[in-house]
Nucleic acid binder design. Structure first.
Lengths: 214, 214
DNA sequence: AGTTAAACGGAACTGTAGTGCCGTTAGCTG
DNA sequence: CAGCTAACGGCACTACAGTTCCGTTTAACT
């Protein structure tokens, strides 16, 4: 007898199963990139991937689950960090990378769609957070090295600095709509570096100036 | 004869028409806040608003158009800025306001959903950008006053500083998933203030250090 | 108050997304 | 390489979102 609790695709992950997954995720990415999250439905995915409709419904079952799986896939391909020798150089390289990704004709719309999907479902959101966690971990050493070199104060939260570089770019992409050019990327990097040098990202500041209310 | 190009609701905007719009937008907000963008469909809206299904389809016609109209409505209610007397005080007040809004049980999910909708449609995105443009204009004077007081360098881009306060909070909400607490808000304000003081948001820097490549 | 047509709303219709059934293909194990 | 069954895929079915049609209500203007 088989353990009936197992999800389809987990017992025999290779061969055809893997091929179907790759084709389907490719189709999902294509649809998200060119039509956006709102126009994604499972029937359409099955048609585009040239795969049985039943298969898509059985293995994923919902739009958000599809996107979550796509994010798992995206999380595996990592892009290595820069090593320019200075904090500002590294942060600018990171900012430029993010900026180029978000303005790319395929990646930009894709990221928009993936984030939209994550707002609708907890599991998808979790997959997205995992994705960014990996990317941030990849780049955090830049900041730690800057601390070692004495460029930044001791106790600086490396992850927080890396996030500070991306944040303004994502804010432009999703909220304000301001242009996402190289100047914006450089500015994001410079601002993060300046704030970090001023100690804005030093963590666990128990020695903070005494609260002065009441 | 009537100009047939006119959109429904524009010729007789008062009375029942206005009442229907208010009820429908209320229902849209409710659904977005409690179920998210993916589960919003026009039939459901009509049912919840206790309004003829035909009306919703005729006047709005799509989910994104509904959200765009909701954003028009949201843009009208503005929240006045703080006047604490110092840049950091004002920025912290702004950061706290954004943080409280995004963690509010109704407003938080609503903002997520609205941003998700904006990623799927150009007109909705435009409405969202307009919404943030208004909010940012409202708070920009804080920064200009700080320049006048000599707290910030001449030529500092006021809008950019205000955006820099919100950006990390939205990044947490939508991308990284890190906690959106008061500490995060204070950090965002402090980082923006520090970067601004360092001159990271001075615009039109034609006197920038000479490019040194090739 | 009366007139006009803008806007609403009920009811019937249609296309298609989502589901269930079952036979076929092919991945893993020994 | 043979057997077992996980996983796929075609087909028929269902439910409901989205559309059309037309009669009713009522906002705007005189």
């Amino acid at each position: 007898m088989s353990a009936e609790g197992a999800q389809p695709g987990t017992v025999r992950p290779g061969g055809r199963t893997a091929r179907v997954r790759a084709t389907v995720l490719r189709a999902v990415g294509d649809i998200l990139a060119e039509r956006g999250f709102a126009h994604l439905d499972l029937s359409d995915v099955a048609r585009r991937a040239d795969v049985g409709k039943t298969t898509v419904y059985r293995r994923w079952g919902s739009v958000t689950a599809l996107v979550a799986d796509l994010l798992m896939d995206m999380a595996e391909q990592s892009s290595p960090r820069a090593r320019t020798g200075s904090l500002l150089g590294d942060l600018k390289a990171n900012a430029r990378l993010v900026q180029r990704t978000l303005t790319d004709p395929r990646q930009g719309p894709l990221f928009k769609a993936v984030i939209a999907a994550a707002t609708c479902d907890a599991r998808t959101a979790e997959a997205l957070h995992h994705f960014y966690d990996i990317r941030i971990r990849e780049w955090a050493p830049c900041v730690r090295q800057a601390v070692d070199r004495g460029e930044l104060p001791e106790g600086t939260d490396a992850h927080e600095v890396i996030r500070a570089v991306s944040a303004p770019l994502y804010y432009r992409l999703l909220a304000s709509g301001d242009p996402l050019d190289e100047a914006a990327a450089d500015r994001a990097a410079e601002a993060a570096a300046a704030a970090a040098k001023a100690g804005a990202y030093v963590k666990d500041r128990k020695d903070e100036k005494i609260e002065r209310d009441a």
